[in-house]
Write a protein that binds this DNA or RNA. Structure first.
Lengths: 228, 228
DNA sequence: TTACTGAGGGTACTGAGTGCCATACTCTCG
DNA sequence: CGAGAGTATGGCACTCAGTACCCTCAGTAA
């Protein structure tokens, strides 16, 4: 029944557009009663995003079992679940992407979905950063950054028609965040020198208390430059 | 007319709630015709956010004239415009906050507004990072991080009933992002030293190309520590 | 057989948002 | 002063999403 409604709806959406298709049109093509539509989908928009609810619970379940490991790495893995869901049906994802780009109400719905992912990730990080006085803020910002990076990679893939390697594009975007962020705040809690991310960047970030004796700063620099 | 409608609407919203108040109720209390409501507000939700449209154009105008200065600093200043708008009417902002927290459709509307701010900031950054191969991604992530930090500070203030110093809370949140982020990518383009944020934080961030001669790094440190 | 349950269907209703037209009011030109 | 043009407002009727309520028709247990 769900499948029948989704199929009928998408046919009509591509034929006449989302807004010019009424729920009556959909149930007429599907051959079911109008009332049944709203039994399976709480709104007309929901039929366009039939799989996000499941993905959200998957993400929650994944995070619930990931109690150790670098928090930022964990939520990157969680974000990859979303990309995987999109990659499972490239044609469907691309069709939906084109539809969503043009219909304001669908954009609004998508925003609310993305927001729920972001809240899920932020909630996890807040628990992991429970001791940190800046933990709540850090959780918010990191979750937002990871979601933004994920969506950037995802959209790049979608714009390309879903032909390239989506997960790889997302990985690269996520790596960018971890590279510039993951290392820097490592230092923020230790109050001393910190090493850069990894990979092929050739810069080093050093954090030290202002007014610290200069020799100590140089010491940290030497230590930092030494261990690569 | 706008003011009359807004006032009537908020009275009814606090009396009976947003969803149980119909547009007919609003126009009846305001003493105007129903059709006039939709002339001034495209939807029932818009009456709750009467000032965001102006703030968005203000932000665009501000960014259009800010062609130099550190990009991250510029969009921080742009974000502060939003906080200022909230701070201009604390009681109204808090009433709206409480309302928005409880009504799903208002939350959805707020998400779309936040998203437009984020797009505006990202658009600006994308132009500023035009040369950078990672510029587009960096723009997305930084815009998202700044918006998240701003909203974190804003919500803290709103939860406190609008009594504390909102702009200060936002400043602290924004400083957190610049501290852990703003400095790291400075090095990506200039390859040399960079100064910290400002205010009362007592840490200094120094960035230098790895493998640079050590004396040059120390030189940068002395220069950085000197100018405060 | 009856009684219960649960999925689907039908009808009528509320309320947001729109299109169209009528009615003022105002400003300008003659 | 008055005619005409442009503009703000009100009123009416309509579409359509979403909901409440009730109906039918399985299948099933007793």
């Amino acid at each position: 029944m769900r499948e029948v409604l989704i199929e009928a709806a998408f046919q009509l959406f591509v034929e006449h557009g989302f807004e010019r298709t009424t729920v009556d049109d959909i149930v007429a093509r599907a051959g079911v009663g109008r009332r049944s539509f709203f039994r399976y989908f709480p709104s007309k928009e929901d039929v366009v995003f039939p799989d996000h609810e499941r993905c959200l619970t998957e993400m929650s379940a994944f995070l619930a079992t990931s109690t150790d490991g670098e928090p930022l790495d964990v939520i990157c893995d969680a974000a990859r679940l979303v990309m995987r869901m999109y990659a499972a049906n490239p044609e469907f994802s691309v069709r939906r992407y084109r539809l969503t780009r043009e219909v304001p109400s669908l954009r609004g719905y998508e925003l609310s979905v993305v927001h729920r992912y972001e809240r899920t990730l932020a909630h996890y990080l807040r628990q992991r950063y429970a001791g940190d006085p800046n933990g709540a803020l850090r959780a918010e910002v990191e979750a937002a950054a990871i979601v933004a990076a994920h969506n950037s990679g995802l959209r790049t893939w979608l714009r390309g028609g879903g032909h390239g390697d989506g997960p790889k594009a997302v990985d690269q975007s996520l790596a960018f965040v971890r590279q510039t962020w993951g290392s820097a705040d490592e230092s923020a809690e230790s109050g001393a020198a910190a090493a850069p991310g990894s990979e092929e960047d050739d810069v080093v970030v050093i954090v030290a208390p202002r007014k610290a004796p200069l020799w100590r700063v140089v010491q940290k620099i030497e230590k930092t430059l030494g261990d690569d």
